[in-house]
Design a protein around this nucleic acid. Sequence first.
DNA 1: ATTACTGATACCAATTTAGTATCAGTTCAT
DNA 2: ATGAACTGATACTAAATTGGTATCAGTAAT
Lengths: 142, 142
Amino acid sequence: MKVLNKETDYAVRALISLGMKADGWVSAKAISEEQAIPYQFLRRILQELIRNGLVESKEGAGGGVRLGKIPAEIGVAEVIEIFQGKVQLSECMFRKQLCSNRANCVLRHEIMRIEKMVNNEFSQITIGKLIDDLKAVEAMKG
Amino acid sequence: MKVLNKETDYAVRALISLGMKADGWVSAKAISEEQAIPYQFLRRILQELIRNGLVESKEGAGGGVRLGKIPAEIGVAEVIEIFQGKVQLSECMFRKQLCSNRANCVLRHEIMRIEKMVNNEFSQITIGKLIDDLKAVEAMKG
DNA sequence: ATTACTGATACCAATTTAGTATCAGTTCAT
DNA sequence: ATGAACTGATACTAAATTGGTATCAGTAAT
């Protein structure tokens, strides 16, 4: 049961990388090299982040991307939702509004409680916090 | 982001179904029909539950399956683990013991916290509790 | 013997995941 | 005004996973 897929994983890394940089445009190529993310794959991911407003872009030479929000306002939950959709049970249980099989409903109820918890936790983990943690770690090692 | 796949879903349903039955052996066919689970698929799932001790079986005519533990001792977490493996981050982060990329480690730390929470919640949802809930619902409906 | 079962395992199609490639358009520097 | 360095959009692909099917062998009750 993999919680995060590569897209989410790479997206978070890219966002952290952008958040740690001084202002200015950063090229996909630079991020790709720094974070060891396959270039073309990263490009598609960035485009998706742009479409969702987490990142802004500037075309042409000297262009690139930068964060579209402040790091503290980007929750990991938002990133997960973009690339993996909302946390949900097994499909069939959401299709029918009335579960024909009551056993599902009971389990579903429980899982929705957990879902909310998880979503809440993930939205409190922001890129800003991750960056702060990172900096704290680096300061200790430095 | 689907939390439970069909195998886990069907396994839980089958376990609930078994737990609600009076003692005795129940055939895969009977469960399959009652719960509308594809027969061959269910058979494979039951075999896996048997291998893991959640279910016992008896071969031959008049045989079938029954719970291998009392319902209160079967947590959904256990079922999830059998069919979907332990909750984990994205693979790469677990491969290397030392993350070459520190950003991952920070995120990983947070997610491991959430993982534990989720696992804890899921292990407290037992087949026994689900059955009790189900019975309560049915009693209310008369 | 025959019927009703499980054990083991191989197979399959559809979907998803991770990654690649291409072409068009924009901006900057010279 | 040309070339290099960029993004936008989108099509393609191989491999893995998921959900489901099929088969054959063995066991037990009647």
